[in-house]
């Protein structure tokens, strides 16, 4: 059995006294897949992530994480398996020090303090923030906060990572470090973002949402080079493809979405 698998079967969600924001969505994400979730504002990306983490319960359909169906009874177990990074890292950093913030999750699961210290060190090291361990969380820069917020999730050793706009609040340097870190993770990942260049570099598969429905689910290359479809859904080509006449041709120059694009662009220049 794989804890890393996510399956949605005809999932719909409606806010009380509101419109249906997620409409009959079905997909399956397998072990280790990295999936970009894109769409215009209000397309339903954040709601979908909240449904996957059990913060919201679908009005219809089933969500299966690993082999476990998401219900109120299984929430505790499923949340242990899922790491959710909020759009605003400040929402995840509410303790005094970085150490206490990263240790917050494992402490709630009754892990002993020696093991917690190991986990904190490991998680911070993974995101290159071990030197921040004893710093005050509120004194960190935007980039540092983002890295620490990812560490707060990694310390729980989840199987699946859900990330809501991970590149927001980041300068280009911090964003590049984030991309490298995301590419080094072996977790199953869903990255909801407007940063299509980030999707290009971190996700082989992309799901495009429009008005709560899946418009496209497939290879990142196919969707992110389809200017017409992207524009129909309130998006545009990734910046690195905007000056190129034939984006799909450009993509084919690349061996992998991660390194290939850098090579391709430098070739073009």
């Amino acid at each position: 059995m794989s804890h890393h698998m996510i399956e949605l079967k005809n999932v719909s969600f409606k806010y009380p006294q509101g419109n249906e924001v997620i409409k009959d969505i079905s997909f399956r994400i397998t072990h280790g897949e990295s999936v970009g979730l894109i769409g215009a504002n209000g397309a339903g990306k954040s709601t979908l992530l909240m449904l996957l983490s059990g913060l919201l319960i679908p009005t219809n359909g089933d969500i299966i994480i690993g082999e476990t169906k998401l219900t109120k009874k299984t929430l505790k177990y499923i949340r242990q398996r899922i790491g959710y990074c909020f759009q605003n890292p400040d929402d995840q950093l509410f303790m005094n020090t970085v150490y206490d913030d990263v240790a917050f999750g494992p402490r709630n699961y009754g892990i002993d303090e020696i093991e917690i210290e190991k986990r904190v060190d490991k998680a911070l090291e993974r995101v290159g923030a071990l030197h921040l361990k004893n710093k005050f969380s509120y004194k960190l820069s935007g980039g540092e906060k983002r890295m620490v917020s990812i560490a707060t999730v990694l310390s729980m050793e989840p199987d699946i990572l859900l990330m809501d706009e991970p590149s927001s609040f980041l300068d280009p340097g911090a964003r590049r470090r984030l991309i490298n870190i995301l590419n080094s993770f072996e977790h199953t990942k869903i990255i909801a973002t407007h940063d299509l260049d980030l999707v290009l570099e971190t996700c082989k598969r992309t799901i495009l949402l429009k008005n709560g429905k899946i418009v496209f689910d497939g290879n990142t290359k196919d969707i992110l080079t389809d200017k017409k479809l992207l524009e129909e859904c309130g998006l545009e080509l990734p910046f690195c493809l905007q000056t190129i006449d034939k984006p799909s041709l450009m993509f084919s120059l690349c061996k992998s979405p991660v390194n290939g694009f850098q090579k391709g662009i430098s070739h073009k220049l």
């Binding site: 913060l55 505790k76 909020f86 929402d91 509410f94 709630n108 303090e113 729980m156």
Partner: peptide, 24 residues
């Protein structure tokens, strides 16, 4: 909104009403 987000981030990390604070 902010309080709701922080509470969500707490429950997603296993918070169940008990404040567990470090070493004994």
């Amino acid at each position: 909104d902010r309080a709701k987000n922080i509470y969500n981030s707490m429950i997603l990390r296993g918070f169940n009403g008990e404040f567990n604070i470090g070493k004994k």
